[in-house]
């Protein structure tokens, strides 16, 4: 990603705001941007969602394919997650093969969903050892104003809940609702001006330090963690954001489950 011209000025500005417990756009430390979630928005996808958080906009589409199972797991289907940061989503995004950032995003989203056990991979078996469903989660950024991680994570789980297994198209019985029995939610925190904040926007990302992604499931079970970018953090800082994540994740879980 392209470097801003005046990163030090921005960092100083954000540090000054932080010292007065303020953020550049006037939000509180644990306050997210205005959020909108829609499902079933894409005609060609078997499940889909659109998430808008402030000026960050993403789509997620679910597609299914038939594949041969792995030899060591003959009765289990597959799950694949991709995240595309197209250059249309921001002037800082360069065209070309998938960037390390986009690969990290897709893998973190994937882990949260996979490890929560919200998809029963055995339920995706068609003929053991021969044919299983592969679920593909494609995250696609339309406008990047920061925190694509959470936007992708939320769109992915909402799209999965919205998905239909296209049995008829593949001549494997009738179409049926894709079973997703849990709702893992990811919340991301970034150190900006020396303290962690929730849902950093692009300005805070550029002028901030390390970020921590937490995926929580039912009963605040932890399903994935990721520390990204340069920076150090203390155990007490982690406890603080974990407590904030428990509150926010359960709010967002209610939203997804109500769709």
């Amino acid at each position: 990603m392209a470097q801003p011209l005046v990163p030090e000025l921005l960092r100083t500005h954000l540090a000054e705001l932080a010292s007065r417990d303020q953020r550049a756009d006037g939000r509180g430390r644990w306050e997210g941007r205005e959020l909108s979630l829609e499902v079933g928005v894409l005609d060609r996808a078997e499940g889909s969602a659109r998430v808008q958080m402030g000026d960050t906009i993403v789509f997620c589409g679910i597609k299914f394919q038939i594949q041969t199972p792995y030899p060591d797991r003959p009765d289990e289907g597959g799950l694949m997650t991709s995240a595309e940061l197209r250059p249309g989503a921001g002037r800082h995004i360069e065209p070309g093969p998938p960037s390390p950032e986009s690969i990290e995003m897709s893998r973190v989203v994937d882990r949260g969903i996979r490890e929560s056990g919200c998809i029963d991979t055995k339920d995706l078996c068609i003929i053991p050892g021969e044919k299983v469903w592969q679920v593909i989660i494609d995250c696609f950024a339309i406008s990047d104003d920061g925190n694509l991680f959470d936007a992708f994570g939320l769109a992915a789980i909402a799209a999965l809940h919205n998905a239909t297994l296209p049995g008829e198209r593949f001549d494997i019985g009738e179409d049926r609702k894709f079973p997703v029995n849990k709702t893992p939610i990811m919340c991301s925190y970034q150190k900006v001006g020396g303290r962690f904040v929730y849902d950093s926007n692009r300005e805070e990302e550029v002028g901030g330090d390390e970020r921590i992604h937490i995926t929580l499931g039912e009963g605040d079970h932890v399903h994935s963690l990721q520390k990204g970018l340069k920076g150090v953090f203390t155990a007490s800082e982690f406890v603080e954001i974990m407590e904030a994540a428990k509150v926010r994740c359960s709010e967002l879980r209610k939203l997804v489950d109500s769709m």
Partner: peptide
Amino acid sequence: VRYNMAPFSTTDRFRPG
């Protein structure tokens, strides 16, 4: 100018790239 199709834009998944 870049024209690109999203992976979920078609009936069969469109391989990105």
